[in-house]
């Protein structure tokens, strides 16, 4: 076990776990954002740099700070490590630059994109990014590619997180897509336009943090926030069969796997469940899915415990000015007579 301090909170985690895993054990708003790391896939992480943190003391034996910010998703913890995330100005300003870098080639076509509303990059940019971009040069553009019967690839939107490559590697036996070329020219592609025919290929739609890989059966069908998520399951011989159905009225528009609070798939589902079972009669309904109140998907559902998004509070706090030209009046005592 290793004892570390993350943002002033002490926690004991298993040896060999990463800083990000330790932060997730604490939970809440201090957890660094992650665009490429995927807890259920081996080898992911270290590519998007969204989770950079400052290590102010390396370990108990060697308490020197690490010279540069480190990616928390691939840096293992050491006993006595002190990590700063939201407390460190450098981390926050770097994160702003990371957003800017990720958005350099991103087309920002959210009004069209089917991922909008549940997009990791959208959330990341909203939480940490600047309102304005400085990039004025031409963005790279690709043609849309149909990979397989059900999946459409918008390479323009891709941020090269490699999640789909790891998914294909670890879920299936023969991976037929990957990252081709290097550096600026790198792109996700199927080998000589090979289509992905595997039974679990649909999962690359779910793991994609942006709208690069989208469901063709849901393409432009509706905005995510107008659909109603419902937990359901069915007996499937290939997968666990535990899914979320996205309803509009009585129609199932889309079937996805269930995700945890960090938008990571818990149980991967097969293509039969995802693309072919779109009737309510195919499923056993468990009940409405709980959606975080701060998510746009919960719009129009007037539930108790309404929470204001952090963003508005932050703006209010920044703009708050103390007005001290009036003496503070003591609250008037209400007698039962005047209270009437």
């Amino acid at each position: 076990m290793a004892k570390i301090t993350f943002d002033g909170i002490q926690i004991e985690v298993a040896d060999g776990s990463t800083i990000l895993q330790a932060a997730r054990q604490i939970g809440g708003s201090i957890v660094p954002p992650a665009m490429c790391y995927y807890s259920t896939l081996k080898g992911t992480g270290g590519k998007c740099r969204a989770c950079l943190v400052k290590v102010t003391a390396g370990s108990e034996k060697d308490p020197r700070p690490m010279p540069k910010l480190v990616a928390s998703c691939i840096t293992p913890v050491q006993d006595g490590m002190i990590v700063e995330n939201t407390l460190n100005e450098e981390v926050l300003s770097t994160r702003k630059s990371i957003v800017e870098f990720l958005l350099i080639n991103h087309p920002l076509d959210c009004p069209i994109c089917d991922q909008a509303g549940e997009c990791d990059l959208q959330n990341f940019a909203f939480e940490h990014g600047n309102v304005k971009q400085r990039y004025e040069e031409e963005r790279r553009e690709f043609d849309k590619i149909d990979i397989g019967q059900y999946i459409k690839l918008h390479m323009t939107r891709c941020i090269l997180c490699y999640r789909c490559v790891y998914t294909a590697d670890q879920l299936t036996e023969k991976r037929v897509h990957g990252v081709m070329n290097r550096g600026d020219a790198a792109e996700i592609s199927t080998y000589i336009a090979n289509s992905i025919e595997n039974d679990f290929s649909g999962n690359i739609i779910d793991v994609c943090p942006v709208g690069a890989l989208t469901d063709k059966t849901f393409r432009f069908a509706n905005r995510v926030w107008f659909t109603k998520p419902v937990d359901a399951h069915r007996n499937c011989d290939k997968c666990s069969g535990k899914v979320v159905l996205w309803y509009r009225g009585n129609d199932v528009l889309r079937v996805t796997a269930r995700k945890n609070e960090y938008n990571e798939v818990i149980d991967f589902i097969c293509n039969t469940c995802r693309f072919e079972k779109k009737e309510t009669s195919d499923w056993t309904i468990e009940g409405p899915r709980k959606i975080e109140r701060t998510s746009v998907i919960s719009q129009g559902h007037y539930l108790e415990g309404t929470q204001v998004a952090d963003f508005t509070k932050r703006v209010a706090q920044e703009q708050y000015k103390n007005i001290d030209d009036l003496p503070v009046q003591p609250p008037r005592q209400l007698s039962p007579d005047t209270a009437r």
Binding site: P111, R223, W225
Partner: peptide
């Protein structure tokens, strides 16, 4: 119009 749905989302009267 690209049918992004933001007007419908913002509309207080639905």
């Amino acid at each position: 119009c690209t049918a992004c749905g933001l007007c419908a989302l913002a509309c207080p009267a639905e």
